[in-house]
Design a protein around this nucleic acid. Structure first.
Lengths: 215, 215
DNA sequence: GCTAAATTACTGACCAGTCAGTTATTAACT
DNA sequence: AGTTAATAACTGACTGGTCAGTAATTTAGC
């Protein structure tokens, strides 16, 4: 009876699009775009296929919506970190562990896998993703590393290359969850992975400590 | 006229299966398994669709053949390195750069992307891949790192975790070639990436040099 | 009862898989 | 060598099922 509570099943929402894209995302990630049937998406969202077409013009349009909706709100939090941290080491840690907490470890972690699988079939969405996600994310990382080098905390490294290298193990792990992950039944032990990852990259980035340096 | 030369176009091979799996691999990687039509594979291989069924029972069987054929000969070279190098640092470099040269930078580099995309849809092939590729590859890496730790060259790290972390940037880069890579038109500049990668991980792994050590 | 939301039934294109027929290659016989 | 018979390699039109997208119909809210 209330307007906020999803009473029975029907005639209810304008939060409906989000339910549909959420259902679509999980199925696209699980089975791939082409192998996912619209009937399955509708069923998972608790509606019929026809309802999908009240909100999205086509399967392709649904794909675009899935990517855009999942991605748009994700970068702002990261970009805000630039002002919140001064120390480059803390900043880098905050960016990377923030990515894992907000994306990698959530349902959104499937988006990189999906986008990578389908980039060839959706050139325009791929262009959008590269512009709005990859480039902005890279710029963020680059700012952190660059600041660290400028202050002598990090060694001199190729900025473009290091950004890809740094994010790769996190994205790789997120993709893993949706491919081989279910096979292994091991999900709880991300801890050691992240610990080892940070241990490796931070040790790898740190400038050698000069004997008797100021701090 | 000659029997060794592929004269015109037809009626030729028992190297045919390899031509078909090669065509299938490139299309599967490019468009995904479900979105690839058997007619396209046949066309790329220069035969008709019917011919496919002379060599493979089904589209699924072709998929399995693509994975197995691409993967089987790949591990032996790596495993041979264990005896060829004694120094752990050299060994690790040889394994990782060997992976890039023999797999990552070749057509075979698409297999990880393909396998990751389709693992959910082909549980048996995924199991095979995990057993014959991932586990064997991991064991190889683990042996190298473990040797390095035992000799005090590398720091103490979680062995399982470090193997995934180490290979991730290479696999990630290989996948990139088949997804966003074509968008950027930049293929020649793998050099800086690899250089930065090795710089980071080797510095990250090295045990701190004690003052006045034997070397 | 009128409008909006949703469902159900339907259509047409697409594609994996089949098979009867065609063409190349080899073998046999003279 | 030349002719023919037998086999192997291949082709492409066809079919049956699946699924994106649409239209007709029902249900809910005012």
């Amino acid at each position: 009876m209330t307007e906020t509570q999803p009473a029975r099943r029907r005639r209810r929402k304008e939060a409906r699009p989000q339910e549909l894209t959420a259902a679509a995302l999980s199925l696209f990630v699980e089975k791939g775009f082409a192998a996912t049937r619209l009937d399955d998406i509708a069923e998972r969202a608790g509606v019929s296929k026809g309802t999908l077409y009240l909100y999205f013009d086509s399967k392709d349009a649904l794909f675009k919506a899935v990517i855009q909706e999942g991605v748009v709100p994700a970068l702002h939090a990261g970009e805000a970190l630039l002002e919140q941290h001064d120390d480059p080491l803390e900043l880098l840690r905050a960016i990377l562990s923030g990515w894992w907490e907000r994306i990698g470890s959530t349902e959104l972690g499937g988006i990189p896998k999906l986008m990578m699988s389908e980039a060839g079939n959706f050139p325009d969405v791929a262009a959008y993703y590269q512009r709005e996600v990859i480039q902005r994310g890279t710029a963020l990382l680059r700012a952190a590393v660059s600041r660290g080098i400028a202050r002598g905390v990090f060694r001199e490294v190729d900025l473009d290359a290091i950004c890809s290298v740094l994010i790769a193990p996190l994205v790789y792990r997120a993709m893993w969850r949706y491919s081989f992950g279910p096979r292994c039944g091991q999900e709880a032990d991300v801890g050691p992975y992240l610990k080892t990852y940070f241990d490796l990259i931070l040790n790898g980035l740190m400038a050698p400590v000069a004997a008797g340096d100021t701090q």
